[in-house]
Amino acid sequence: MDIQHKAALVTGGGTGIGRAVSLELAKRGAAVAVNYSRSEAEAEETVRMIQQTGGRAIAIKADVSRANEVENMFETAVREFGTVDLLVNNASITRHIPLDDLEAADDEAWDELYAVNVKGMFYCARAAAPLMKKSGRGAIVNVGSIAGLTGSGSSLPYAVSKAAVHGLTKSLAHALAPDITVSSIAPGAVATRWWEGKEDKMKQLSRHLPLERIATPEDIASLICAVLEQEAVTGQIITADCGQTL
């Protein structure tokens, strides 16, 4: 699918990978709805960055774990852009819990991470589907993680939630075919604000990776846009980790 002149919605679009993909989509000619839940200033800055280069963008507040807010968000995007052709399900949260501390992985952690990381992506795909089917073509990319492939990450609930994202991707690819493609990008370590104050640890990790570098948000954004453009790819989990899982 040609991204130019399409309308895109990016969840968690104010920072990190979300900001990078919002900017890349705009660079390729898409109008972009930048979703945020708490990062209002960052989302508004992303919009300004797009507008300064002649692009079209709006910021929309919505907690993706709440179905009614997701519906309202899509209604706002449609009022502004007419439809939504492209969806990047990027919004995710985590809690830092040692994997072997099973008692710390309490109901609150499980419920919160699943509500945002899994149900949130489902709610957004569900809201986008009728719009995409009406136009006859659409594309969705869910941002997963190598944690969902390896089972290791910032916490056990996070890793399991990302495995669920990969499963959701495959199920949606079946459910929404043939009009809508659905795939997932599974990044490894990415140089986002999560690494602030941990730069030495990031450099140490990069030395042990086959490509001897940490992926940038722009790396992941470029890949996401490339996948959105593919009309012969669906249901795929594409790893982007500089060789971390080799």
Rank of each mutant, 00 (worst) to 15 (best):
L102I: 15
E103H: 13
A104E: 09
A104N: 10
A105T: 13
A105F: 11
D107G: 13
D107W: 14
D107S: 15
E108C: 11
W110V: 07
W110Y: 05
D111A: 15
D111I: 15
E112P: 06
E112Q: 15
Y114Q: 13
A115E: 11
V116R: 09
N117M: 01
V118M: 05
G120W: 02
G120A: 01
M121N: 14
F122T: 09
Y123V: 08
C124M: 02
A125S: 10
A127S: 05
A128L: 00
L131Y: 02
M132F: 02
S135W: 10
S135R: 15
G136N: 06
R137C: 13
G138R: 07
G138N: 08
A139D: 05
A139R: 14
V141Q: 01
V141K: 04
N142Q: 05
V143D: 04
V143L: 13
S145W: 00
I146G: 00
L149M: 07
L149Y: 01
G151A: 03
G153Q: 04
S154Y: 12
S155L: 05
S155A: 02
P157E: 02
P157W: 02
A159F: 03
A159H: 03
V160A: 14
A163I: 02
A163P: 03
V165S: 04
V165M: 07
H166T: 08
G167Y: 08
L168Q: 09
T169R: 07
T169F: 03
K170W: 09
K170L: 10
K170T: 12
A173Y: 06
A173M: 08
A175T: 11
L176H: 07
L176W: 05
L176T: 10
T181G: 13
T181K: 15
V182C: 11
V182M: 11
V182E: 07
S184I: 08
S184D: 06
S184M: 08
I185N: 06
A186Q: 10
G188W: 01
A191I: 06
A191K: 14
T192G: 01
W195P: 01
W195F: 04
E196N: 14
E196K: 14
G197F: 04
G197N: 02
K198C: 05
E199T: 05
E199F: 06
D200L: 12
M202Y: 10
K203F: 09
S206L: 09
R207E: 15
L211G: 10
I214L: 12
I214G: 11
A215H: 08
T216F: 09
P217T: 10
D219R: 08
D219C: 06
D219M: 06
A221R: 04
C225I: 02
A226H: 13
L228R: 00
L228K: 00
